[in-house]
Design a protein around this nucleic acid. Structure first.
Length: 480
RNA sequence: CGGGGUGUAGCGCAGUCUGGUAGCGCACGUGCUUUGGGAGCAUGGGGCCGGGGGUUCGAAUCCCUUCACCCCGACCA
């Protein structure tokens, strides 16, 4: 019996040791997070996947509000002339912009870009809205989808259309803008590490990797279980680049016209991909309790027998009242064993099995998804004991991911070591600051610079690539 | 955009070489028995064999053409 089950399971979920990317695809499709859309490179996010996104939205949005931001909505279509205003920005995005050229039966005089990002349209509005320093800062955010015509796509990690959040702020001084940029990166780090149990490395992007039109870009980088990097969030300081292009000026305290200092920052549904590829295992997803749409699932055993459903409903009500996101799986069309596998695949952190035997003993059989261990817990103290279990799972997932990450970051001092390090993880290296070295590393190892950590404690004197005097400590990795 | 591959039931595939009534597994419907790790038996439904054109008495199968998707490279939140 056990052997047969094992076989069946392998048919469903390819172990990641064999082919990580196949494993990823199997998991997201079979856990009913997404489906493929009848549009090239786009995905359909199904209810369970969207519920995870809603959890991330809540965690993010409450922090945005707490730091003084307000939500707005901008149009999806951007006139070409507007997009062309900031030279670097156009150059960066032009290759992946989708265009609307016709409206109804009329060919448009000016084609309209489907937003790849909304800097330009925010700028257009900010230039209208700002008069004097009294109007500053303006700190707006929008939740929307954007479109980038990607050549190769993968659900959550890179799709033509994706859901995200983009914050756009304008400030009086460079210092304020810089503070905003770093503050929002910190908000991202907090959500990633505390809520999503994703250990991240924060730092500044190289000029090669920075956002098109930014003065400085900062990112948080997560490590997936195949050792590749995933840029999980970015925060940009534009200085006055866009303000000059879009003429966003304000009357200063001294009565002079000045350009505003602008920032933008964003995270996307890519974060869901990060959770899957960081925490997933051979049974499917493992969701951290704080982000899980369903934290506790109750599976009745022999539900037709007297008292079982009643007890399940009772426990459900009790946990619901205690504030848990809980569900009773009362389907009578599938067996308990099927339900076990189903909810493990979907990553629900805690499962309670309640059957006649449990009720007789006054317990629930508790299964925790992080370790896949089963143990009885007294029904009487269940509500009181659950918080500790949840914390333990949340912390366990983070610790496990961090231990993996730390074990796969290697300090390197030359190209040979660097090449070897990026085969299985991140290379931590000294760098001279030249674009040529980044290009060489890309060419030889297909790895790119990730970011330069804020803690710049040197690990050597010379650039790992060219051997010239080093200026920066930086991470290199293959990336999604 | 280069190189390789695949299109047959909702999904995964066999059948193609060697032309002769469209198959298998899973999923789905119905009935009974089950229920502590993906239940069993019985029975049923479902196909323009990617599209178009040819060859042939006869094409999923051979020929021509077209479209779509996937994988590997170059580009990317």
């Amino acid at each position: 019996m056990a052997k047969k089950d094992e076989k069946k399971f392998v048919e469903h979920i390819t172990p990641r040791s064999e082919d990580f990317s196949q494993w990823y695809t199997d998991v997201i499709l079979q856990s009913e997070l997404v489906d493929y859309a009848p549009v090239r490179g786009c995905m359909v996010i199904r209810p369970y996947g969207y519920a995870i996104w809603e959890r991330i939205q809540q965690e993010m949005d409450s922090r945005f509000k707490a730091t003084g931001h307000e939500n707005v909505y901008m149009p999806m279509l951007i006139p070409e002339s507007l997009l062309l205003k900031e030279a670097e920005h156009v150059e960066g995005f032009a290759p992946e912009v989708a265009w609307v050229t016709q409206g109804g039966n009329e060919k448009l005089q000016e084609r309209l870009a489907i937003r790849p990002t909304s800097e330009t349209i925010f700028c257009a509005m900010y230039s209208k809205w700002v008069g004097s320093y009294r109007d500053l800062p303006m700190k707006y955010n929008q939740w929307c989808s954007v479109m980038r015509w990607e050549k190769s796509t993968r659900p959550f990690l890179r799709t033509s259309e994706f859901l995200w959040q983009e914050g756009h702020t304008i400030h009086e001084t460079p210092e304020e803008a810089q503070q905003e940029t770093l503050q929002m990166l910190e908000v991202y780090r907090e959500v990633a590490e505390d809520a999503m149990a994703l250990p991240v490395l924060c730092g500044r992007k190289s000029d090669k990797e920075k956002f098109a039109g930014a003065q400085a870009t900062y990112s948080m980088e997560a490590m997936m279980q195949d050792g590749k990097a995933l840029q999980a969030g970015t925060s940009h300081n534009f200085g006055t680049n866009f303000a000059e292009a879009f003429d966003i000026q304000y009357l200063s305290r001294e009565g002079k016209l000045e350009y505003v200092h602008e920032t933008s920052w964003g995270v996307s549904t890519r974060l869901i991909g990060a959770i899957i590829m960081t925490h997933g295992d051979e049974r499917g997803l493992r969701l951290p309790p704080r982000i899980a749409p369903i934290q506790v699932v109750i599976v009745p055993i022999a539900a037709h027998k007297g008292g079982v459903m009643e007890k399940c409903d009772e426990i459900f009500a009790q946990l619901k009242a205690a504030g848990y996101r809980v569900k009773v799986d009362d389907r009578d069309t599938v067996s308990p064993g099927y339900k076990f596998n189903d909810w493990e695949l979907k990553g629900v952190p805690v499962r309670l099995e309640i059957g006649p035997r449990d009720i007789e003993n006054g317990v629930a059989t508790v299964f925790r998804r992080d370790t896949c261990e089963k143990a009885p817990m007294a029904l009487e103290t269940l509500t009181a004991d659950l918080p500790a279990l949840m914390d333990s799972i949340q912390q366990g997932l983070y610790d496990q991911a961090k231990a993996f990450r730390d074990a796969h970051v290697t300090e390197v001092h030359n190209m040979e070591e660097l090449g070897k390090a990026v085969e299985s993880g991140f290379a931590k290296a000294m760098w001279c600051g030249d674009r040529a070295c980044e290009d060489a590393i890309k060419e030889q190892f297909n790895a790119s610079s990730r970011n330069m950590p804020f803690d710049q404690t040197a690990i050597g004197e010379t650039c790992a690539c060219c051997g010239k005097p080093a200026k920066k400590l930086i991470y290199f990795a293959k990336a999604y």
